[in-house]
Design a protein around this nucleic acid. Sequence first.
DNA 1: GGAGTCTGGGAAAGCACTTTCCAAAGACTA
DNA 2: TAGTCTTTGGAAAGTGCTTTCCCAGACTCC
Lengths: 365, 365
Amino acid sequence: MTDVSQGGRRRRANSAARPGDAPSRVTLQDVADRAGVSLTTASRVLNEGSRRVSASMAGRVHQAVAELGYLANLQARAVATGQSSTVGVVVHDIADPYFSSIAAGFIEVAYSRGLLVCITSASAGEASEREYVSLMRAQRARAVILIGSRSDDERARASLAAEIGAFSRDGGRVVCVGQDLLGVDTIMPENTAGAEALARALVAAGHRSFAVLAGPRGLLTARDRVEGFRAGLRAWSVDLDPRAVVHGPFTRDGGYEAMSGLLAGGGRPGCVFAVNDVMAVGALARLRAEGIAAPAGMAVAGFDDILTLRDVYPPLTTVRLPLTRMGELAAGLVLADDRPGQPRIIPVPGEVILRDSTRTSPPRA
Amino acid sequence: MTDVSQGGRRRRANSAARPGDAPSRVTLQDVADRAGVSLTTASRVLNEGSRRVSASMAGRVHQAVAELGYLANLQARAVATGQSSTVGVVVHDIADPYFSSIAAGFIEVAYSRGLLVCITSASAGEASEREYVSLMRAQRARAVILIGSRSDDERARASLAAEIGAFSRDGGRVVCVGQDLLGVDTIMPENTAGAEALARALVAAGHRSFAVLAGPRGLLTARDRVEGFRAGLRAWSVDLDPRAVVHGPFTRDGGYEAMSGLLAGGGRPGCVFAVNDVMAVGALARLRAEGIAAPAGMAVAGFDDILTLRDVYPPLTTVRLPLTRMGELAAGLVLADDRPGQPRIIPVPGEVILRDSTRTSPPRA
DNA sequence: GGAGTCTGGGAAAGCACTTTCCAAAGACTA
DNA sequence: TAGTCTTTGGAAAGTGCTTTCCCAGACTCC
């Protein structure tokens, strides 16, 4: 009489729980009991295809499930099967439309494949990215997408790369949207080429003197765009005075401040390139505050072609990146079953879009 | 010799796995083996505070953890402890700044408390919200936040409410940002009052004839704003012609189309209220395409005071909602340990902000 | 110096599942 | 009708953790 092998089975005592207690969730065992079948059979019914179960048994199980409102515990399932269905998304700032657009593309694809998408804002740069990759490793996530610029902090980057290595070794997949510096699949916006093309287009449009609102010093995306722009100017033998490159946060207010700095320094270029649209908008606001009309008094160009910013006035010259598409591409790389030997680099070209904010009414010499 | 109770222990055969195989992740047992302690002790060391462990043992365990690069499997831990650390976020469209701002506030708080934030875009309304709540129930998530307007589809809403009920019964917490219609904690933006105040302010500013770009028919947020606006006008005995209320999607393009519809119908009101900023921006674009100057030819007002839209031209009159703060408030309600008997409703007032887009140069009679 | 109280380590029982293995029945062939 | 093969249900072993329970040894106390 030691072992009551069947029937009265183990049953947690909390069926008569005190009011304040944790609620007793219904488990697969409860379903099996109610349906009068074994746990095994109940499990098989719910994982259709794992093995044939007679229709009558299946029917009873389904009825029990419905009556009890049972829903399989995905965490337990993940432990049992050894594979989870979560994927991670890391952005710098989810409220920034650049990131939310890319994330939207990724999330759409991931969710449509039945994956659970976890997200975070890594406001503290690569250190927080590392932390999150680690968390995803602890979650045994299938994949992680890192959206956003790398920084020039090589120490932090190495630490991030190490964490990514551990994650990959555990079977996780990683894709990055940004610079190709982590040795993983990368969706690489062509920041340099895009900015270069923009510079050429601006010179071709008649602009001759330039300044750059350059974003934070450490951010490689900002740096690439500045470098590309400089190269584009050089191709036309136009010089960019180092003092005409002023740094500032990658935000609207950063653009505002940077423009302030430029004006305070006595700069009055014919055209200003802000390294992203959000900064460009801040710069426009600053000009307006100063009473300088947008293309006439000073032309302004941005980068990204953010959807919500397409209607600022004057319409912003910019370099369009297919943000949502980039998120989808990233999802495609990392959610497929294939496991390529080499990291794949997908360059994404930007398209120069000339609008009114850099118009030169009568083309100057 | 049947039972080798110690030492050689169970060891999965995959230590000599074939190249293409699933990688062998290191488990707590591996750590314990390496440190020469029991699984129990290793677990205790990693869950500091669960019970005292001698320094020497702890040291060995920590060293083994470091050498093996061990990271506890959170899913397994969740199964063992019966409580997970995930929370869910449901937005209508993550790329829409209204949602991403609220989500950002919530995510910030949740992540700082060590919670894992899962997110989805419920583009198909309450049906997809229901689906996601169900998924969160399966994940045994701690809480879910539903960000966005309720619809007038009562059937779908009832179905969502039922799912929420099941989730709550399992111990999950739910908070909604929007109308108080689900019987859960709610952050309730005062859409009606805000729109009413806006209407009064516009009339006070001298406007006399109005139209409304009303958003989708079924969305209660849109409806509340229209109703509030109408009430505000009525208070000043200004009438709103039903034909001057034109519906359209809650997006920039929706605003554009709605404005098209208004113009096509021969409408030429002195002032148009678009029920959110994004639509207002679309409306402004349409006016520009028509050659109608913004405040002079027709005034335009929005709602929300979206950060990225503060720099459109002309600057948009709107009703400011503290979006990020609302997300934080929601997090506060639902991530606390207390479990109030009654759902709490937190009304969030909007603040009318008059800007140039509704300026009336010389106040008309 | 024996009773009583701490300590701290480990075996084993959970947790909510999946999956393997076994066995009993039914279907088929010869 | 025996022999083989194919179902199909269930017991039991995993999955990677936590936590309970037990127990040996160290310590205190009178």
